[in-house]
Design a binder for these strands. Structure first.
Length: 886
DNA sequence: CGATCCCGCCACATT
DNA sequence: AATGTGGCGGGATCG
């Protein structure tokens, strides 16, 4: 034993022997190995002196032995390298050794003994936690591997994680420098800051949700990780690492993952992160699809990282019991508070120039990240839809004016998108989970429906789309157009949705959708209202940010706040409230928010009215952010509060292109639309019997814009029949006009018109849904499910939003809930294509089918194809957002 | 049976 | 080309 220990102790010995062989052989060989077959180390018995000697010995011995490995299991139990645990055995070995391999064999190291965590402990034991500054300890991977009796590959796993925390740095090939934990605190602080910037908001959302949900621990973390981080690796940059250059292109995923993982803990309120959430968050890009395999792989990696972190005493394994059950999770047990905050950092990145920072990004990862977000938002605003496109590629292509900044922005946006997506996915899952768990659901209204998850994801995207599309169309074309754009229906097309361009020019409308969601939620839920408001406010901020391009200051602030918000002060009135509310608010919302960036500006060009509307929106945003917000909130709150209203809402219709409807609304509601983010038109209003809900985003955009101009906004508008809806059977898809409802001219544009028509005709009492393209499902079961709602589907773009909204609503309002459910059912059967594009028209036959329930959207997606759906959802978002038309 | 995660193939990077 | 790195996922073990 001593020997073994020594060996470890004395790492220095240069010898490398071929530990590998030995190690590999692990088990002793039955045949010969008299000695201690197990580990290299063990074997050495003869010459204890130097570890190396032992190693050699072992090796030599082993090699022959090696061949036999097979036996190991039952027979062996080699002690293995492990000293301690094994030690006893080792002794035994000695005793036994020669003769019975058996014992050894039996001892064969259990898996645990070979665990990475244990190996890491051994590794760490070799070096002082706080080495004297003077002494520089170099680590030779080969040497360590041999000493510890493991393959070098394992050492890489450990070193990579340690490197991510700057406990070691790579000096040269096969050589690492041991720094110890002197800088650990600083590194963690940095990560925390970076994490807040990147994930802060998201985290908060998630956490809130989670908490709401009821996680025991409450947490998971959520967050998304921006790609940007990846590359730069937050920390790395600064670290002393001489080898900064080192980080070559490849972002070592393990290192990055490790940092991100740590960031999650640091950002998490609860300090507890579940593996699945972390994995989701870490999975970048469009993962909606969710490759199960990918997820699995990610989890595996996280285990690797977690084992090392556990050995470092930074985290410990725990179980979080959620509604669903218990999930593996890790709790941060390391230092939490770090003296000085990085206010500075924040200031930099957020406030200061987003762009530049981003570009520079390379220099300071943090900043970059932060900037990235901001930018993203901005982008969104600027570019409009593009931002998201989850898939970057597309986006990049689209946008036009590419400036460097822009491009950068785009990139960021992409990242942002990816994050969003991830978040969405996470949210979605949560929601789903929540939904599953009834208990939890309460907090989050959304969840209830299975589809929700989709909604979450989709909604945003869709919402975004709608916005854009709407805008575009509206601008360029009145209702119909927009619808057409949307209609393109082909999924692909839908995703991109053309309209944007026009819209985009300046900003994306995308944002709205999300807001819309919020709105809905808010409206629906009484409680939520507040939350929503805040969220909305946030949204507004974001929008502002997005728009910020124009108003940088505001944007920056917001962004900064956002970032900071979690930890830092949000400051403005909103922030605090928002934060709180935010937290409570559903995840989805949060997701939405980020996305949203609507804008309307572009609209101007085309439709003057649109512009105005846009302005309103902005104004709102601004207002929200500042003083106005409260009012809006109030208004909103009031609306939502009323259960009656909710009911009405249920009745609400969503119009894809409801410009007319919107107009009505707008008229009726007039200015207010903004307030709530959802616009819901009371029956009294223009619509005789219809209530309109507009997603906040939508609403704003839609309302303002749409109402005035954009018919196309359609997206946002969803008319949901009130609970009573049941009565309404009709849904009109804009494009498609299902025969029954209104004859829509052609699918494409007619939608708006159709909407109108339907409206008019139907209006009387029926709840009509206007889908942009959707088909009406006349069938409708009037009752509960309110098939009509389904129409939402029709509105492709809208649908998402609607769906979300609906879902949200459902949650929020019982009434809604009921409907949705039914709806969902319906929808599923229908097999609707969720994607807006698909929605598009005609092709999809009837998207609407059972539009009704919000939840459906998900279902739709599902129908399309789970994977695709997922991805699509994300992509859709992105695409939609991007609106690149094709 | 799900949670863990060891093991090592193999691709890519670096020398 | 050899060697260093490290992504990745099959499949064994654990609980």
């Amino acid at each position: 034993e001593n020997i073994f220990d020594r060996s470890r102790m004395a790492p220095k010995t240069p010898i490398k022997n071929e530990p590998v062989d030995l190690s590999k052989q692990k088990g002793c060989t039955p045949e010969r190995i008299p000695i201690t077959p197990v580990k290299l180390v063990d074997r050495p018995q003869p010459d204890p002196w130097t570890p190396t000697a032992n190693l050699k010995m072992l090796v030599s011995a082993a090699s022959p032995d090696m061949r036999d490995r097979e036996k190991k299991k039952e027979l062996f139990r080699p002690i293995e390298n492990s000293e301690q645990s094994d030690t006893p055995d080792s002794l035994q070995y000695d005793m036994v050794d020669d003769n019975t391999v058996d014992e050894f064999e039996k001892q064969r190291p259990s898996r645990k003994q070979k665990s990475l965590g244990l190996l890491c402990q051994k590794f760490l034991a070799r070096y002082p936690s706080y080495p004297l500054s003077t002494e520089k300890t170099t680590i030779s991977l080969d040497e360590v591997a041999s000493i510890l009796g493991v393959e070098r590959r394992r050492i890489y796993d450990i070193v990579n994680v340690l490197e991510s925390l700057h406990l070691v740095s790579r000096v040269a090939k096969n050589q690492y420098c041991w720094h110890g934990r002197h800088n650990l605190s600083q590194t963690l602080k940095t990560l925390q800051e970076a994490g807040e910037l990147q994930y802060g908001e998201l985290m908060t959302f998630f956490q809130h949700k989670e908490q709401d949900l009821e996680y025991k621990f409450g947490e998971r973390k959520r967050e998304t990780i921006p790609d940007s981080q990846d590359r730069p690796l937050l920390d790395f940059s600064e670290p002393d690492c001489t080898s900064a250059s080192a980080n070559s292109r490849k972002d070592k995923s393990l290192r990055i993952m490790s940092q991100k993982f740590v960031m999650l803990f640091l950002v998490s309120k609860t300090k507890i992160v579940t593996l699945d959430i972390a994995a989701k968050i870490l999975i970048e890009e469009t993962q909606d699809t969710v490759d199960h395999s990918k997820f699995k792989t990610k989890v595996r990696r996280l285990y690797d990282i977690a084992n090392v972190l556990t050995s470092l005493g930074l985290i410990k394994k725990v179980h979080v019991t959620e509604e669903r059950g218990r999930k593996p999770a890790f709790k941060w047990i390391g230092p939490v508070e770090f003296p000085g905050k990085t206010d500075e950092l924040r200031g930099h990145s957020p406030t200061s120039d987003p762009l530049p920072g981003a570009q520079r990004g390379a220099c300071a990862p943090y900043q970059i990240c932060a900037t990235g977000k901001q930018r993203l938002t901005r982008h969104a605003s600027f570019n409009g839809a593009q931002p998201c496109e989850g898939t970057r590629r597309k986006v990049s292509s689209e946008p036009n004016s590419p400036r460097q900044e822009r491009q950068a922005c785009i990139v960021n946006s992409n990242e942002y998108c990816s994050k969003m997506i991830n978040l969405a996915a996470v949210c979605r899952q949560k929601i789903e989970e929540d939904a599953r768990n009834p208990s939890i659901t309460s907090p989050l209204p959304l969840l209830p429906i299975p589809g929700d998850s989709d909604f979450c994801v989709n909604p945003l995207p869709q919402a975004v789309f709608p916005m854009v599309q709407a805008d575009v169309p509206s601008l360029s074309l009145p209702n119909g157009i927009s619808s057409q754009a949307l209609h393109p229906s082909t999924p692909a097309a839908s995703k991109r949705e053309n309209g944007k361009p026009t819209l985009l020019p300046n900003q994306p409308f995308l944002c709205f959708p999300s807001s819309s969601l919020f709105m809905l939620c808010g409206g629906l839920q009484e409680n939520n209202l507040r939350e929503t408001l805040p969220t909305t406010g946030d949204v507004g901020n974001r929008r502002a940010e997005a728009q910020a391009t124009v108003p940088p200051s505001a944007c920056q602030k917001r962004s900064s706040h956002k970032c900071a918000s979690p930890s830092a002060p949000v400051d403005d009135e909103e922030p605090a409230a928002k934060k709180q509310t935010m937290e409570q608010s559903d995840v989805p919302l949060s997701l939405v928010v980020p996305k949203k960036s609507f804008e309307s500006p572009k609209a101007e060009s085309t439709p003057g009215s649109g512009c105005t509307s846009a302005e309103h929106l902005e104004a709102f945003h601004l207002d929200l952010a500042s003083p106005a917000a409260p009012e809006a909130a109030d208004k909103e709150s009031t609306k939502p509060l009323d259960s009656q209203e909710q009911e009405k809402w249920s009745q609400n219709k969503y119009l894809d292109e409801p410009s007319p409807g919107k107009e009505h609304i707008s008229k009726e509601n007039g200015d207010q639309p903004f307030l709530p983010q959802y616009l819901y038109v009371q029956p009294t209003a223009g619509l005789s019997s219809f209530n309109f809900l507009f997603s906040a985003n939508q609403a704003p955009g839609a309302i303002s814009l749409a109402a005035s101009q954009l018919p196309s906004l359609s997206i946002p508008c969803v008319v949901v029949p009130s609970a009573a809806l049941a009565s309404f059977p009709l849904v009109c898809s804009p494009t498609i006009t299902t025969s029954p409802l209104s004859p829509v001219p052609d699918g494409s544009f007619s939608a708006a018109a159709s909407m109108n028509f339907s409206m008019s005709g139907l209006a009387s009492t029926m709840p009509v849904f206007i889908g942009t393209t959707a088909v009406v499902t006349p069938k409708v079961s009037p009752s509960p499910s309110v098939d009509p709602q389904q129409p939402a589907h029709p509105a492709l773009h809208l649908s998402p939003v609607l769906a979300r909204s609906c879902s949200a609503v459902k949650l929020d309002s019982p009434v809604c809930m009921g409907h949705p459910v039914t709806l969902l059912k319906l929808q599923q059967p229908s097999s609707t294509p969720l994607t807006p594009k698909s929605i598009r028209p005609a092709r999809h036959e009837a998207f609407f089918k059972t539009p009704g329930s919000l939840g459906d959207p998900v279902a739709w997606k599902k129908t399309e194809g789970s994977q695709t759906r997922n991805v699509s959802s994300v992509q859709r978002r992105l695409e939609i957002s991007s609106t690149s038309p094709d």
